[in-house]
């Protein structure tokens, strides 16, 4: 069975989608990703979709699911590199991907993840590990 590779980079996971997804592949990605978050207690997930030329309502739903599921597991998902044509099509279609945070590229996405973690560390000192 074909699978999308998930790379671990420290506290974060990086997924680069290079092929147009069909349903089974997308569903596999969803479960693989959630399992990997759990395994490494990852704090953030970057999904690079710069090579994706189409997102329909099904794919949109998968992205939304991943964002919400990872949030429950205390990991922030950032979708990066959406093509302009894909963004316009999603808006026309009526999908705004609520709950999904996006960034222009992997670099910006990484910055965003770091700043989010930094903020949450400051806001919730009771969960903070002082020896870090």
């Amino acid at each position: 069975m074909e699978r999308i590779p998930i790379l671990k980079m420290g506290q974060y996971l990086l997924v680069t989608i290079q092929v147009d997804l069909y349903d089974q592949l997308a569903e596999n990605l969803e479960s693989d990703l959630i399992n990997t978050i759990s395994k490494h207690s990852s704090k953030g997930v970057l999904i690079d979709i710069s090579a994706v030329s189409i997102i329909d309502s099904f794919m949109g739903r998968i992205l939304g699911n991943i964002a919400v599921m990872s949030k429950i597991m205390d990991a922030q998902t950032v979708v990066v590199g959406m093509q302009p044509a894909v963004a316009i099509t999603l808006v026309e279609l009526g999908l705004s991907l609520n709950g999904v945070i996006s960034a222009l590229n992997v670099e910006r996405g990484m910055e965003l993840l770091r700043s989010k973690m930094h903020n949450s560390d400051n806001e919730e000192p009771e969960y903070d590990d002082d020896n870090e």
């Binding site: 030329s53 189409i54 997102i55 329909d56 309502s57 099904f58 093509q83 302009p84 044509a85 894909v86 316009i88 099509t89 026309e92 279609l93």
Partner: peptide, 12 residues
């Protein structure tokens, strides 16, 4: 853009 709209509609 129009290609993307067309194939997204097709996909739906």
């Amino acid at each position: 853009l129009n290609q993307t709209k067309l194939i997204t509609a097709t996909s739906e």
